[in-house]
Design a protein around this nucleic acid. Sequence first.
DNA 1: CAGCTGACTTGGG
DNA 2: GCCCAAGCCAGCT
Length: 105
Amino acid sequence: MEAFTLRVIEIIKNIPNGMVMTYGQIAAEAGSPRAARQVAYVLHSSSDRYKLPWHRVVNAKGRIAIRDYEGHTLQKMMLISEGVNFIDDEYIDLIKYQFIIMNCK
DNA sequence: CAGCTGACTTGGG
DNA sequence: GCCCAAGCCAGCT
């Protein structure tokens, strides 16, 4: 497994309760801005064994990325229970809930 | 080694 | 705002 994947896992584990991050954002923090799809791959393949808060990861539009209806609904439920509100029961207000990692040097 | 895949992103119409 | 096409990268087969 590459460092990139490990970084992705670490980043996701650090998303605080009630916050969310986008795939592209995570990929960028992990070192590859264009590897958003790889982030998705890591999520659906290793979220279980690494105990990741997968439900705190959404796409760039602030919508839930899961295609499967069941999972999609589950994620929305998990987020709502953490205090994340949805707009029109569909979009997350990234301005308010996106977790921004800043490297203030 | 070559090809396929994916819970993405972006740009154009 | 929605739909479609192309680009993207790392992991798997």
